[in-house]
């Protein structure tokens, strides 16, 4: 009896162990199932590089280039802000901060990571957007720049915590060796610690930016959502994610618009897949 019970439990454990593979496959499958139909209406090239997105005109124009560029622009802006600040903060926490401050800072970063994106979007709307509007004297503060700044805050917790881990896992002997040669702490960080942790830091940056590309609510609330090819960072843009979130509610199940939004989902899925697999390779580089 005991044997049988344990056998059943162990089989159940194995099944659940495989569950994550099953769910990833299921997600991809259902995106494909719903999204692939769009290519009956528009060929993949025109879908990816078409310059206009008018999904409800007749016939609908389903080119997502403006959305891709919108996502890229916002992500690029967020990268410029979050990478230097995030990595610097990681170095400060890992190397400079005294032990107690360190714990407090780490908790603070964790809190930032926990703030729901809709709350950040709301705060961005009521504080950042008016600020951007008045500083640059533009008709609306709902711009790619506002989105970038807000998204930088969503990328930084990821960048800081993973980069900090990478710095922390550099063998102590490296540091001691550099100190023994008379290097200052800063020289040691710059010449020894950062290069030694570089693959982990790269992974941190990739994962942080991966989070930015996939971020939805905050972006939708503060970038203005104009599906046009952006010319400047001070213009409203529309990202891939915001398009899905904003339009799926109105799209009729089974329409070309519905299929097209799933196809956008496929694009996002592939991007996040590529980012995560590559980052994982960097993170586990040392193990092999």
């Amino acid at each position: 009896m005991r044997k049988l019970k344990e056998l059943v439990i162990e089989k159940l454990i194995l099944i659940c162990g495989l569950a994550s593979i099953f769910f990833v496959a299921l997600i991809f499958l259902f995106l494909l199932k719903e999204g692939f139909a769009v290519f009956k209406a528009v060929n993949p090239f025109n879908f990816l590089f078409g310059k206009s997105w008018y999904p409800i005109s007749d016939p609908p124009q389903l080119g997502i280039l403006p959305l891709i560029l919108g996502s890229l622009l916002v992500t690029l802006g967020a990268a410029v802000i979050s990478i230097p600040i995030g990595v610097a903060c990681a170095v400060y926490i890992a190397e400079v901060a005294p032990a107690k401050t360190k714990e407090a800072l780490k908790a603070g970063i964790e809190l930032l990571a926990a703030i729901p994106s809709v709350v950040l979007g709301f705060i961005g709307m009521v504080t950042l957007v008016p600020l951007v509007k008045s500083v640059f004297h533009i008709p609306t503060g709902l711009t790619a720049l506002s989105g970038s700044i807000m998204l930088a805050f969503m990328a930084m917790p990821t960048i800081v915590s993973i980069a900090e881990d990478a710095l922390y896992s550099v063998p102590k002997s490296y540091k001691e060796g550099a100190f023994a040669l008379g290097a200052t702490h800063w020289q040691t960080i710059r010449r020894v610690m950062l290069p030694a942790a570089s693959s982990g830091i790269l992974a941190a940056v990739m994962l942080g930016l991966g989070r930015v590309i996939g971020e939805t609510m905050a972006v939708m609330m503060i970038t203005g959502n104009a599906a046009v090819i952006p010319r400047s960072i001070l213009q409203p843009v529309r990202t891939l994610t915001a398009t899905i979130a904003a339009e799926m509610g109105e799209a009729v199940v089974g329409s070309e618009h519905y299929f097209a939004l799933f196809a956008v989902g496929i694009v996002l899925f592939i991007i996040s897949f590529a980012v995560n697999v590559t980052a994982d390779l960097f993170l586990h580089k040392k193990e092999r």
Partner: peptide, 29 residues
């Protein structure tokens, strides 16, 4: 290794894509 990679990916899938997936699988299918 595949399981670990699947978990990493599951963690990285954009939240709005989860929304699409839920719509397609649970709501519609």
């Amino acid at each position: 290794r595949i399981i670990r990679l699947a978990i990493v990916n599951l963690a990285g899938v954009p939240s709005v894509v989860y929304g699409l997936f839920g719509l397609a699988l649970f709501v519609v299918f």
